[in-house]
Amino acid sequence: MSTARRTLSFGDEAGIAARFPEHFRPNWINRAKLIGGLTLAAAIFVFGLIRLEIPFDRLFSGIGRLIEFLGLMLPPDPGSWQLAQVYLHAMGETLAIAFLGTLGGALLAFPVSFLAARNVLRIRPLQLLTRRLLDMVRGVDTLIWALIWVGVVGLGPFAGILAVMCSDFGNFGKLFSEAFEAADNKPIEGVKATGGSHVHSVRFGLLPQVVPILASQLLYFFESNTRSATIIGIVGAGGIGLQLTEQIRVLEWQKVSFLILMILITVASIDWISSKLRFAIIGRKAVA
């Protein structure tokens, strides 16, 4: 059938081309841009492969070994009920790290985002300064923060909470201030027109608009922090990452797969809960 359609559509291709020459003329500038861009991307890629000295011979033997590991991982097995309880506790720690870290980061970032937003305090130099500060905080990965906090409060989940808090402080500061700036100006003008002060206009014109957005961002970050909190145990900052790295190092593959499975299930259920909550807060449309 599609052949029939095809003959029907393209039977008079020459005729169509003659009637609409502008649609058949190749656009050389666009084409040159595209080819140039692709060549550049490919060139950097090849340069990367050469400079990083990617060993292609090891690629195949490595894949073989991965498949071997995968075979050893089945079936997932925590070993004993005691160990399963230890892992569950570690998972709980991970959730606690993500939850308190996100919340604390948001609480710290909220006042600072007032400074960073263009339309709230309107002190230009302070605004630029806070923005650069937030950029710097964001430039440091959660794992590096964890490394620093382990030095301050010692090993354990508390260091993880503080680390997630720090890196979220940077993210939230930026996102919150952007949310403030994207807010509709009309309610603010409305409050001012009825005689409200600037503080009033922020409280009654701006905040009600942005609070749902902030709440949804908070939930979204809780989701993504659950993922990152699963790994900060690698540097000793608590949570399931510690168990996971240990089991990988001693090649206990069945325990590794059990732990990974636990992470997958937990993250999936947190995703599910938080997306339900987010839709409840700001409606299905706005999230997409």
Binding site: P55, R58, L59, G62, R65, L66, F69, T245, L251
Partner: peptide
């Protein structure tokens, strides 16, 4: 990365 370091050896790969 941890798993792949075991499978492919240390390095950027």
């Amino acid at each position: 990365a941890l798993l792949f370091v075991l499978a492919f050896g240390l390095g950027p790969l």
